[in-house]
Simulated assay, not measured.
Amino acid sequence: MSKSTDQSYDFATADFNSVYRGGELLGDAGITRAPWDIGEAQPGVIEFERRGRIRGAVLDAGCGLGDNCIFLASRGYRVTAVDAASAAIELATERAGGADIEFAVADATSLTGFEDRFDTVLDSALFHTLDADGRRRYAAALHRAARPGAWLDMLCFAAVPGGMPEPLSVKEETVRQVLEEAGWKVTELQQAIYWGVAEVTRDFLARTGTQVETDAQGRTQLPVWSVLAERA
């Protein structure tokens, strides 16, 4: 469970280009490798696909190193993957090989040039990295990029015992409010698991006084909200 923190960090200063190139993600937190890089699609994303929650033109917002969009492309979906970090897009393109994926460097809080394009929007751990204003702009941008009736499938760190410290985790009511104000109708919100690389975040978690579960493969088992929504 989470304890009172010994050290706090300004998560808004996270440098994603830096961590993708082996530098520090967050001040002196000691995170010099992407802790979400588990080398395969997140189980929550696989579950979205298994449940039939992927259709038509797909946007992977904040694609990181591309494992989720590569998985979806391998299942025959037409995927556009964007990330604000140019290093992420470079590495994801390499990792994807010849997969038929449209990669682009783009600010997910505006998504200029992507209006009215997508039937499914996937967010695997982007929403919680933004501050309050960024979350509102992001939800509105996704709404503009989506077609009427489009689906949103989202995983974001849950502000619950055993989870990541706030503000990197989000309360259920915040998720609902931000999405619904942007024109998304939340149809399901439940707790799920997000995998991370325990070795990468061990010092950071110790400094923040946070204790999380790990599995036999050395992966953190972090609680997330698994959110299903529909564009009104």
Rank of each mutant, 00 (worst) to 15 (best):
G97F: 00
Q211A: 13
E181V: 10
G27V: 07
A145S: 14
W184F: 10
L228I: 05
G27C: 08
R33H: 07
S110L: 10
L59Q: 02
R50L: 09
A81N: 08
T187M: 08
I31L: 06
A104N: 03
H143T: 05
G52L: 09
E166R: 13
A216C: 03
A106W: 00
L111N: 06
P223F: 13
L189K: 06
R219G: 13
S18E: 11
P165E: 11
I89Q: 07
S74C: 07
P167H: 06
A146L: 03
K171Q: 13
P148E: 04
R51N: 13
T208I: 12
L25V: 05
V178G: 02
E188L: 08
V212I: 15
E166W: 00
G162Q: 10
D123P: 10
R202F: 06
E94C: 02
G64C: 00
L152K: 10
H128K: 04
G149V: 07
F204V: 06
S169P: 12
Y138R: 09
G39N: 12
I31T: 08
T187K: 10
R144P: 03
F71L: 13
A12L: 03
S110H: 11
A92G: 15
A108V: 14
G66C: 05
R75T: 05
E180Y: 07
I193R: 14
T80Y: 01
A14Q: 14
R231A: 15
T120V: 04
P161T: 00
L222K: 05
A206S: 13
L179Y: 11
P167W: 02
T210L: 04
A229K: 07
L130N: 04
G209A: 01
D215C: 12
S74P: 01
T129P: 02
E24S: 15
A192I: 02
L155M: 14
F157I: 08
G52S: 09
Q217W: 04
E47M: 03
Y77F: 15
D37C: 07
A41Y: 10
R135C: 05
P167E: 04
E181S: 14
D203M: 05
M154L: 15
C156W: 00
F11K: 03
L168D: 06
I101W: 02
P165M: 10
A206M: 06
R202E: 15
I38L: 05
Q211P: 00
S18Q: 09
D123C: 10
I70V: 13
E49W: 04
R176C: 13
P148K: 08
D6M: 11
G183W: 11
V224G: 02
S226D: 06
L72N: 04
V19T: 09
G134M: 10
G44C: 08
F11G: 02
E166H: 01
D83T: 01
L122K: 02
K185H: 12
R50P: 01
Q7I: 11
A92L: 01
D123Q: 10
D133K: 09
T13F: 05
V212D: 11
E47F: 00
D83Q: 01
A34E: 09
A139F: 10
A106K: 00
D83K: 00
I46D: 04
Y138F: 15
R21S: 15
